[in-house]
Design a binder for these strands. Structure first.
Length: 274
DNA sequence: AAATGAACCTGTTTGC
DNA sequence: TGCAAACAGGTTCATT
């Protein structure tokens, strides 16, 4: 479900409703998601100070030193519902708040995961230590990208989806960003010129911001915290459009598989390297 | 080291 | 209609 824009939309939906609330009870309906759940009883009685995001991780900063870290995997969803609401299918964890609402976590595929960390271990924890820059920060620039991919022969699409290069860019936004820059997804990243990489970093930023403003992309099941869909999928230029005409030149959009993932691109607008 | 593929698990769509 | 195969937004681990 979520790439960076979707996680950010969830964060923005949760933050004003959850910040300042005290956790009164936690119900875990199974011992593990992708990994064993942390001892969530330890968060009971604590107040949520802020809801932040790093890469695709949601960070619930609690009063004191604890940070509840949550990754939505492919199909994770948070909903804020009245505590009396019966559990929906695939609801695995429920966090009750002191205002009569509960933070409900649903995840059909259970690729999501959670951790309870101390503030001080955030930067060094395995989930965070090797992460590259946030694409919406100043640290992510053409110059940065150039040094990050220098000498690399891997396809540019694989590298912009690599969290060590830049975080938050998943399959959809990788395809959309490459289309908008006219770069063929199979281009060995190290072959790209500085100008192209500067363009690519700008375009990635712009696509992500547009998607956040549209409320994310609702492919099959992404929904915002209030249950409403996001609308960015209406703006896809290539993702999921194989066989349909390119919106720029009319050529049929192609689908190929790179590292086991579908890649969509326009064979005319995105010229293959040689 | 770098690149690829499989695995995790369930639901939905596609094709015969 | 029925059933099996293919496919899905992410990350990690094992294998070339």
């Amino acid at each position: 479900m979520p790439e960076l824009p979707e996680v950010e939309v969830v964060r923005m939906g949760l933050a004003p409703l959850v910040s300042g609330r005290r956790i009164t009870q936690v119900i875990c309906r199974r011992p593990a998601l992708r990994y064993p759940l942390p001892p969530l009883d330890r968060v009971v009685g604590h107040r949520v100070e802020a809801v932040e995001r790093r890469a695709k991780y949601l960070l619930f900063r609690l009063e004191g030193e604890q940070v509840l870290v949550w990754h939505l995997g492919m199909t994770g969803q948070f909903h804020l519902l009245p505590t009396a609401t019966p559990a929906a299918r695939h609801e695995h964890v429920r966090i009750d708040l002191d205002d009569g609402h509960s933070l409900c976590y649903r995840d059909a595929r259970r690729f999501g995961y959670a951790g309870l960390l101390q503030q001080s271990e955030l930067a060094t924890h395995a989930w965070f230590a090797a992460l590259g820059p946030e694409p919406l920060s100043d640290a992510f620039s053409g110059g940065y990208l150039q040094q990050a991919v220098a000498g690399r022969k891997a396809p540019v699409k694989s590298l912009i989806m690599d969290n060590r290069v830049v975080v938050g860019v998943g399959n959809i936004y990788a395809c959309e960003s490459l289309f908008r820059t006219g770069i063929h997804p199979a281009t060995p990243a190290g072959q790209l010129k500085g100008e192209q990489l500067a363009d690519l970093s700008d375009v990635i930023r712009r696509v992500l911001v547009e998607a956040i403003e549209a409320g994310g992309s609702s492919i099959s099941d992404f929904v915002q915290v209030d249950g409403k869909p996001g609308y960015f999928a209406h703006d896809f230029r290539v993702y999921g459009r194989q066989g349909e005409p390119c919106r720029v030149c009319g050529s049929p959009v192609e689908r190929i598989v790179q590292s086991g993932r579908s890649t969509f691109f326009c064979p005319h607008c995105q010229v293959k390297p040689h």
